[in-house]
Simulated scan of single mutants.
Amino acid sequence: MNPVSLILLALAMSTDAFAAAIGKGSSLHKPRLAEALRTGLIFGVIEAITPIIGWLIGQAATRWVENWDHWIAFTLLVVLGLHMIYNGFKHEDEAEEKSAQHSFLVLAVTAFATSIDALAVGVGLAFVDVNIWVAAAAIGLATMTMVTIGVMLGRVLGTVFGKRAEIVGGVVLMIVGATILYEHLSV
């Protein structure tokens, strides 16, 4: 996987977490930078671990699907991209009282929910030439950064922008999938 695709993948993987962080930030009463960093760290670590788990699962299946691995990666990324776009258009009404901080458990569960796509991407990455440790670190760092920013922006931007970010992330995932397919078919 070329460096541009890796960067796009990391950014795409972090957009759903960014959308969730905007929602989390908008539900907090005046979030501080320390809370935003705490939230970013929790999301970033979980988002970095899940593609490694997926990659390990994919590695176990690699020998059975070597001839069509690029189609698997393409399909997974397109399906996940479409799912993110669908979620971006869903309307959710949340009326809850604002607190000063979210509990670790709430943040961890939310982070895991937004990282399921990273797990599936990890499976797809097992079938292409990529260093999973670099990819996981890039995904984790991008997620930590975007979530920290998302929490701070959440109070101002609200969930509308967050949903649009998820739509953009879905489109980017589909582009990365098409790039992987193109690179393998043109060889």
Rank of each mutant, 00 (worst) to 15 (best):
T179G: 10
E35I: 12
F89K: 02
E92W: 03
W133R: 04
L56C: 14
V121R: 01
A95V: 12
H91K: 13
S115K: 04
A95L: 13
L41Y: 05
V79P: 05
T114V: 05
S186C: 02
A136F: 03
G54D: 06
A120K: 04
V79M: 06
S99T: 15
L56R: 12
G170F: 12
I167V: 15
S27T: 06
V156Q: 05
T110S: 11
K90H: 05
V78F: 06
A111F: 00
T179Y: 11
I52F: 11
G25N: 08
L77T: 00
V45L: 14
F74R: 06
G124A: 15
S27R: 08
L6R: 06
V176N: 01
G54F: 03
M146L: 15
E92S: 13
H102Q: 09
R63F: 14
L33K: 01
A137E: 03
A113W: 08
E35M: 01
R63T: 14
S103V: 07
I85G: 03
I116G: 05
L153I: 07
A120W: 05
L11R: 00
I72C: 09
R32G: 00
E35C: 09
E166C: 12
I175D: 01
A111L: 00
I42E: 00
V128K: 13
I53A: 15
N87F: 05
A48E: 03
G122D: 04
A95G: 13
A17G: 14
A34L: 11
V106D: 09
V160M: 12
A113K: 10
S14Q: 12
T50E: 03
V109C: 01
S14I: 10
S27K: 00
E97S: 15
T145H: 10
H184A: 08
S14H: 13
A61G: 08
W55I: 01
T159V: 13
T110K: 03
I49V: 15
G140C: 08
M146D: 11
A34R: 13
A21T: 01
V4F: 15
G40K: 07
I175V: 08
G88L: 04
I7F: 10
T39K: 02
